[in-house]
């Protein structure tokens, strides 16, 4: 129960942060899907496989609180859960750089799909390209900070 409430509060906080950041970053044609990235990290770091139902309902909850179409985040979270669970052992062979590129590309895929669903008539390749680069750099930065300043994250990512 405690862990469920913790997850709920974390989701609400990250969604709030995501909304706030989106307003600022949209001015420079960047979309940073912070909620999705956080969920990817959670899937990657989890000791157990995260099942499809948990991912589905988490996504559905985020759909509800972020005022998007129902199923939008649910599908993508479920798909991300499937991919991470499938390649979780392969990731162990990857370097930080490769994992960061995977995370960055996954988030740009999320951005692309989201744009197709929510914002089809204003779909912008420029935004997608800039967002991809930005997301990869962002993931790299987080990895660098966690490696060189492990105290900030409690432990290395």
């Amino acid at each position: 129960m405690t862990s469920f409430i913790k997850k709920l509060i974390l989701i609400l906080f990250v969604c709030y942060l995501d909304l706030r950041l989106a307003a600022v970053l949209s001015q420079i044609y960047v979309i940073l899907p912070l909620t999705f990235l956080t969920y990817l990290l959670y899937l990657y770091k989890s000791n157990n496989n995260i099942g499809p139902f948990e991912s589905f309902f988490t996504g559905l909850f985020i759909d509800l609180i972020t005022n998007t179409y129902l199923g939008h985040n649910a599908i993508l979270f479920c798909f991300a859960s499937y991919v991470v669970n499938t390649y979780v052992n392969t990731f162990k062979l990857f370097s930080y750089l490769q994992i960061c590129i995977f995370f960055g590309l996954s988030s740009s895929a999320f951005v692309g799909f989201s744009q197709l669903i929510v914002n089809l008539y204003n779909f912008s390749y420029l935004t997608l390209l800039i967002s991809t680069i930005f997301n990869i750099v962002f993931c790299l930065l987080i990895a660098i900070i966690s490696v060189y300043f492990p105290g900030l994250f409690g432990r290395r990512i």
């Binding site: 499809p52 139902f53 589905f56 996504g59 199923g71 649910a74 599908i75 479920c78 499937y82 669903i117």
Partner: peptide, 20 residues
């Protein structure tokens, strides 16, 4: 499990389609 994933994603698509 893959089948469950597939079904759940399918359910998601259905909900999304219905909502839109």
């Amino acid at each position: 499990e893959k089948i469950i994933y597939f079904l759940v994603i399918l359910l998601g698509i259905l909900i999304l389609y219905t909502d839109i």
